[in-house]
Design a protein around this nucleic acid. Structure first.
Length: 576
DNA sequence: GCCGTTTTCGGCCCGACTGTTTTCAGTCG
C-alpha cells in the first residue's frame, strides 16, 4: 500500500482546518487540489519524493512540497497539529455530516462551542440549535439521521450491487411519462470498483413534472432536495440517487460533466480556457459566453477541443487527456474479445456444480474454452483435491473433451488447479503432480499479515516454479472488507516479465484483483494479464464483464490479455 | 498556495439548491 492516501488525507484535513481558520479560500482550495491529484496518482508518492520530482506534479509548489516531505518522514504535519490544538474541533468528522462544511463548523464552535459529532447531537436534542442560523437542515430528526450516517462508514457499494440499483432506476424511469432519454453517469459509468451514488441525467420537455414524479416513485425512501431541474433522493439502505434534467443542446456537455471524474473535468476546462473557450455542463462556449461551439454529444465536445473521444472508464486524469490530444489512446479491450475463462471451481472442491455444468454454461456464453481450477493440496476449508483425486478429475475432463470432439463441438475444457502458496514459501503440491496439470494458478490463502519481504519471498517461489502459469488474485484484497497483503508491485511486475508468468485480474465482484491502478502499471510494463471469474457456480461466469471493465480502466488492449487467445494459441503459450 | 502562448501579480472550474438570503454565502457535486 502506497503512502498516497495518507498524504492526501492529511492535506484534505489541512484544507478543512485552513478554510475554517482563515479567509484565504484559495489556499484551502490549493491543498484540496493537491490532495485530489495525489490520491489519483498512479505512482507512489514516496518514489516521486525520493526522485525529487514532487514539484513536477501539477498543483504542488514550494509550500506543499515541504508539507508532503514532512508527512512522508513523520506521518504528520506540525502546522495541522497546531491548528487542531488551537481549535480542538473535529472538523473532519463534522464536515462528513450532510449540509455541514468548514464554515458551518466554525460558526457552530463560535456560537455553541460544538467540537464534535456528540456535541452536535446533544445540542440538537437539547434544542440549542433552534436559533442557529446557517445550517442547511432544519428538521432535527433528519439532522440526527445525517449524523448517524456520518458516524457510519461510507455508503459505497460494489459496482456489481450498483448495477442492480441502476436496474431499479431504469425501471422507475421507464414508468414515467415525457422522458425522451436518460443515462446513468458518474463513477458508475466510469466503472469504478465501488460506487457512492448514482447520477441520473434525463432529457424531457416537462422538467418540473418529471422531477416531482421521480421523487414519488416506489424506491424513494427520502427526498433530500427537489427543485425544478434537480432532485436528490435516498433509496433503500441510504443509497443516494441524484436526478438532473438536461436540455437537449447540452446533453453531451452534461453527460461529460456528470460522468467526471472531477479531475478529468478540471483538466478539460483548463484545456478549454487555454483554447479561449469556456466549458460547463451546458456546453463549450466562445469567450463571450454566449456562442455555443459544442454540447449535443460528448464526441462533439472532445472534437472541438482537438481530442479523440475518451471512453468513460479512462476518465480519471491518468494521462488520457494528453493521449487523446496526441491520438495515442489505447484501443480498449471488449467483452467479446474474451474467448474463455481460466479460473473456476466445481463440486470437486468448493464449487457448486459439475465440470459439465460449468462447461455447458460457458458454451452458452460463446466461449471456446474454460479451465477448471479446483483447489488442490491441503486447504481443508476449500475441500482441496489430493494427488489421487486430481488424476480422477483429469480422466473425467478427458472424457468430456472426447465427447465434444466426437460431436464436432469446438469447445475444450482445460484441466487446471489452484495451488496454495504456503507460509513457508512452498507450493502446497509436489512438482511431480503439478507438471501433469495443464494450467496451474498459484495464490496466497494464509499468512496475510506477513511483511512485504516475506510475501515477496513466497510469491517468488511461485514465479520461479516452471509449472505455475498464473498468479491468481495477487493482492488478496476483498473490496470494502480487507485491504490485502503487503506486496511489492514493481517486484511482482519484474518477476512476471522475467518468468513469463501471467498476473490475474480476478473478476469476482468483491475482488477485482489486481485493482485498476496495479493492472495499469503491469500492462504499461508489458505484462500479460488474464481475466478470470473465480466462479463457484455457473451463474457467476457473467462476472467476466466486471473483470473486463476493470481491465479497461487499466487501459488494457486485446493483446494484453491471455484469454483473448484462441484455444490453439493458448495451448501453445502454456506449453512454451 | 499555485501558476504563466496575455501575467512573477492577480487570477484560480462552474452552476444548482437552500435558507429566512432582500442580493448572497455555504454546500455539494
Amino acid at each position: 500500500m502506497s503512502k498516497n492516501s495518507l498524504v492526501a488525507s492529511v492535506l484534505y484535513e489541512l484544507a478543512d482546518y485552513s478554510e475554517m481558520e482563515d479567509d484565504q479560500p484559495y489556499r484551502a482550495r490549493a491543498y484540496r487540489r493537491a490532495a485530489q491529484t495525489i490520491s489519483s496518482l498512479e505512482e507512489d508518492i514516496e518514489d516521486i519524493s525520493q526522485k525529487g520530482a514532487l514539484r513536477e506534479i501539477p498543483g504542488i509548489g514550494e509550500g506543499i512540497e515541504k508539507k508532503v516531505v514532512e508527512i512522508l518522514s513523520t506521518g504528520k504535519l506540525q502546522t495541522l497539529e497546531k491548528m487542531k490544538q488551537r481549535n480542538a474541533v473535529d472538523v473532519t468528522s463534522l464536515t462528513k455530516v450532510e449540509g455541514i462544511g468548514p464554515k458551518t463548523v466554525k460558526a457552530l464552535y463560535r456560537e455553541l462551542k460544538i467540537r464534535n459529532l456528540d456535541d452536535l447531537e446533544s445540542a440538537i436534542k437539547g434544542g440549542r440549535l433552534a436559533d442557529f442560523r446557517g445550517l442547511g437542515v432544519k428538521d432535527p430528526k433528519l439532522l440526527l439521521e445525517h449524523i448517524q450516517n456520518a458516524k457510519l462508514q461510507s455508503n459505497r457499494v460494489l459496482l456489481e450491487e450498483a448495477e442492480h440499483i441502476a436496474d431499479k432506476v431504469r425501471a422507475e424511469l421507464g414508468k414515467l411519462r415525457n422522458i425522451s432519454r436518460f443515462e446513468i453517469a458518474g463513477s458508475f459509468r466510469r466503472k469504478k470498483e465501488t460506487v457512492g451514488d448514482l447520477d441520473v441525467l434525463v432529457e424531457t420537455d416537462n422538467p418540473g413534472e418529471v422531477v416531482q414524479n421521480f421523487t414519488k416513485t416506489d424506491e424513494v425512501r427520502e427526498v433530500i432536495v427537489a427543485g425544478e431541474y434537480k432532485a436528490s433522493v435516498k433509496f433503500a439502505k441510504n443509497f443516494q440517487v441524484d436526478l438532473r434534467v438536461i436540455p437537449s443542446q447540452s446533453w453531451g456537455a452534461a453527460l461529460l460533466y456528470f460522468t467526471g471524474s472531477k479531475a478529468h473535468n478540471i483538466e478539460l476546462r483548463t484545456r478549454a480556457l487555454k483554447m479561449k473557450y469556456h466549458l460547463s455542463e451546458y456546453g463549450l462556449f466562445k469567450e463571450d459566453n454566449e456562442t455555443l461551439v459544442a454540447g449535443k454529444s460528448e464526441e462533439e465536445v472532445y472534437k472541438a477541443l482537438d481530442m479523440d473521444y475518451i471512453e468513460p472508464e479512462l476518465r480519471e486524469n491518468r494521462g488520457e487527456i494528453q493521449a487523446a490530444a496526441s491520438h495515442k489512446l489505447p484501443k480498449l479491450l471488449n467483452l467479446e474479445d474474451i474467448l474463455g475463462d481460466l479460473q473456476m471451481h466445481t463440486i470437486w472442491s468448493d464449487g457448486n456444480e459439475s465440470v459439465r455444468d460449468m462447461a455447458e454454461a460457458a458454451r452458452k456464453l460463446g466461449y471456446e474454452y474454460i479451465a477448471v481450477t479446483d483447489h488442490v493440496g491441503s486447504l481443508k476449508i476449500a475441500n482441496a483435491l489430493d494427488a489421487a483425486a486430481i488424476k480422477q478429475q483429469a480422466k473425467e475432463i478427458e472424457k468430456l473433451n472426447e465427447e465434444y470432439e466426437k460431436q464436432g463441438i469446438p469447445f475444450h475444457v482445460i484441466h487446471g488447479a489452484e495451488v496454495n502458496i504456503k507460509a513457508d514459501a512452498k507450493l502446497d503440491m509436489p512438482d511431480s503432480v503439478l507438471k501433469e496439470i495443464e494450467l496451474v494458478l498459484a495464490s496466497i490463502h494464509s499468512g496475510f499479515n506477513d511483511d512485504a519481504t516475506k510475501i515477496m519471498k513466497r510469491f517468488t517461489a511461485a514465479f520461479e516454479n516452471e509449472n505455475v502459469d498464473i498468479i491468481a488474485h495477487p493482492s488478496g484484497r476483498l473490496i470494502l472488507e480487507r485491504s490485502g497483503y503487503r506486496f511489492n508491485l514493481n517486484e511482482m511486475i519484474e518477476k512476471s516479465l522475467a518468468t513469463e508468468t501471467v498476473l490475474e485480474i480476478d473478476a469476482y465482484p468483491n475482488r477485482l484483483d489486481l485493482n485498476d491502478q496495479n493492472a495499469y502499471d503491469a500492462i504499461k510494463a508489458g505484462c500479460t494479464l488474464s481475466i478470470d471469474t473465480d466462479s463457484h457456480t455457473s451463474s457467476e461466469l457473467v462476472y467476466m464483464k466486471g473483470g473486463v471493465d476493470q481491465a479497461r480502466k487499466a487501459w488494457a488492449e486485446r493483446r494484453d490479455i491471455l484469454n483473448t487467445k484462441s484455444y490453439r494459441d493458448l495451448v501453445k503459450f502454456l506449453e512454451s
